[in-house]
Each structure stands twice: as C-alpha cells, then as structure tokens.
Design a protein around this nucleic acid. Structure first.
Lengths: 217, 217
DNA sequence: AATATTTTTTAGACTTATCTAAATTTTTAT
DNA sequence: ATAAAAATTTAGATAAGTCTAAAAAATATT
C-alpha cells in the first residue's frame, strides 16, 4: 500500500508525463510538488523500487503500467470527490481542489464504488475532466473551443482560464459545466458570439471569453 | 494544527476520560491504541506541550478545556461522516467505522458545515451517539432500555450489542436508529414484548433483545 | 516494613520524509 | 574541445512516530 506522500508524487509524475507519454525530470517534479530536487531523488528511488516508475539516473523517470493504473485510481477518487463537493454540497468550482486533494487518499474501494453510484456514474468532473472508471478506462471527448464551434448544439465541458473572475462571469451568464451551448451568430466585426444557453437564454459573449470555453459537440 | 496521529491519541484519551471526567492511565491508552506504553509516553508529552492535556508523571493525564474542544470537533466529524455513509451512500451500521476513522481527519471547516447542512443537521449518528454542534455542544438524551419503556411512543437511539447478527436481526424486523417504537404488551411469562414499529408494524421481540435496544421517550 | 509485582518512564535505535551543502554529471556556450 | 552553467545526486542532519530493553517509581503482598 502506498503512503499519502507516495500517492501525491505518483499522481504528479503521471500528470507531468502527459498520461505516461513522456519522461519527467527531477526538477519539474520538485517545482510542481513545491519541494527540493534532493527530496524528489529520494522518492523516485522508492517509487522505482515499487515498480511504479522506471528511473535512469540523470535522465528522469517514466511511469510503468502499474504506476499508471495506481495514478488513475487516485485521479478517479479526486474527480469523484470534486463532483460530490460541487453537485451535492454546493461548493463552487474554485473551492474544491484542496479538499479533494485530501479526500483522494481515503482508502476504501467500497466507498468509491458507492460514491460513484450516488453521483450517477459521472463521466467528467466539475472542471470537465474525464473520470476514469474502476478499471482506469476513460473517454476523452474531443474538446473544441466554443469560438470554433460551428453552430451545432454542444456541451460546455471545461474552461481554459479558471480564475475566480472568469468563473463568476460564466456563472452569472448561466454557463456551467454540462450546460448546453449553441452558437447562434458570429459577429464578424469583433468576433463576439451570440449563444443560446441551455436552449433558452440568449447571451452575447466576447471573442476572448469564447476562446476560454471548451465544448464537446 | 494537529497531526493525524495526535488527533487519534487525543480522541482516544477523551473517550477513555469519560468526557473529561477522570484521569487516564498510560497503559489504558496503549491498549486502546494498540501500541506500546513507551510510545504513549512520548505522545503524552507532545499533547501536554500543546496544552491539550495535563500530565503528571506516573499519575496519568487529564484533558484540558482546549483538548476537549479539539476532541469534540474530531468526534463531530466522525459522526457526521458515519451518518453520511449510512444515510446517503447506503452503508450498513457495521461497515462505517473504519472509513469514518479516516474521514474524520480531513481538514476543512467549510466541508463539515456543508456536510452538516446536507444531512439536515442531525443530532445523532447511525449508532445513536450524539453529534456535537460546531461549538462542541451536544444533547445527551436520557436513554432507557426498551425493556424498561412504559408504553409511550419512543425513538430507537442506540444498541448495546452491535454484532452483525443482532444488527441484521433488527434490520429484518424493521428497527433502525430513529425508528419509532412503542411497547404494546409485555408478556409476563417470558418477558418478551409486542411492539409497534414506526406506527404500523407489530412484532414480538424477546426479553434479551429488548435489553439491548436503547430508546429515548 | 520489606519485598515482589506492576506500571511507567528513559535511553537508544529504526523508518519515513524532509532539508542543506557539497559533489557529480549533463548540457550549453564560447 | 574546453569552460561555464544547469541539473541531479549523494552525504549527512533533523523531526515525527515507532520500537525494545533497561531503569525507576508506584502499588500490592506477605
């Protein structure tokens, strides 16, 4: 069983590796974990000893199949908890991360299965990130910028900019993750869009805003 | 801020002290925590240094006002989580303890307030134990044995025996924490009772069973 | 009251996770 | 190709939490 700390390192390394596609360097990890490179080297050895990563001195680490599966299980828990906090407890998008960061380490497969069921087996979290299923499988919907949407009905699935100011603005005009959005008209003059939110509310948004909202068609 | 371990020790000491009424000895703590007396002595010093307990060598420890307030906050979290697991996720009474033991250490006052609200500000957990409010206040309802109930409508609030076998039996006859129970008739022959559960279902239970169910009138 | 028993504490060692400072290796620039 | 810079690793220290074994204090027994 992994410690709290080992789990955090592994998750960070997995994210930095781009789903296991590339090697990750010691300094990157140190910066992301807000710790010192020397500490990272120590932990790298531990994780390598447990076959979660492979490690070649001075050349960074790669996540193994085992490591990927462990990382996905942690990410699954994190995203299910975020979903719970927003959907059931009324947290806002920007309040959930730190709490989910703690909750993701709770050890109880039964709890996660029941939580998943309670939430209705969601496929993405409040930020629009996919939630892996219990086998680590997840579906990456092709996301496009709302600015590039062609007028079909689409579903808001993520934001590029997640500053409180932007999130509040979105909330104000009725856009949330999962909201239906449809581009009705593109104003050639400034690139702003008239969109239909949830099939009923028409609003205008600037080109800049439309380039920070991701949708799946 | 207290560590995971410090919180566990403090909670155990508080329980052993009977809500702060009596001194607690090193060996008691060691046994309850499944650790060695030497380790307890170390931790006692840490907790005393933080003014959560007072400590006189060879004569055990007492919980301070601060310590009591910290302990109650942890107990509040534990019981709210247990309530959540049973009421919302469909855990059974006997499955929740280990998970709640982990969840009680999550640090987020906002989370606990929202969870409390989500659960409808419950005053007792699935085992019938009182849940302290955010100021540490709780109401201890006078609990009597169902066997000693006089025929008024009462509310099942706790069990003395919490073996899976007994809990399953209760579940089968429709008794749960919070269920309304009313003694209709006492059979003098063997002390068994005919009771009305939730105002509709009549069942007979043995004297022994009725001496393991606590109710508040 | 002296001795035996039990309880508790101390002393010293081990593990995990961290750090700083110094040494080493790789990469970059001349 | 060599020197300078950057990245990484090693060595040694620290703190939390645990242990065992031995010492000390309190309690119980005769």
């Amino acid at each position: 069983m992994l410690s709290f700390t080992e789990e955090n390192y592994l998750k960070t390394i997995y994210h930095l590796s781009d789903n296991g596609l590339k090697s990750v360097m010691t300094n990157e990890i140190a910066e992301m974990m807000e710790t010192k490179p020397a500490s990272v080297t120590d932990m790298i050895k531990r994780l390598a000893a447990k076959s979660l990563i492979t490690y070649e001195k001075y050349y960074g680490v790669n996540v193994t199949k085992n490591g990927k599966s462990e990382a996905l299980s942690i990410i699954r828990k994190h995203r299910l908890w975020e979903t719970f906090l927003v959907a059931k407890l009324g947290f806002s998008w920007d309040e959930v991360h730190d709490v989910a960061e703690q909750l993701e380490h709770i050890q109880s497969p039964l709890l996660i299965e029941k939580l998943d069921e309670f939430l209705g087996f969601p496929s993405s979290d409040p930020h629009g990130h996919p939630i892996p299923d219990k086998h680590g499988k997840f579906h990456i919907a092709r996301q496009i910028l709302l600015a590039e949407s062609t007028g079909k009905k689409a579903s808001a699935c993520a934001v590029k900019n997640s500053t409180p100011a932007f999130l509040q603005y979105l909330s104000k005009i009725g856009i949330y993750i999962g909201a239906s959005v449809q581009v009705l008209e593109k104003i050639e003059f400034d690139g702003s869009l008239e969109i239909l939110v949830d099939g009923k509310k028409k609003v205008y948004i600037s080109r800049e805003a439309s380039e920070n909202i991701l949708v799946t068609e």
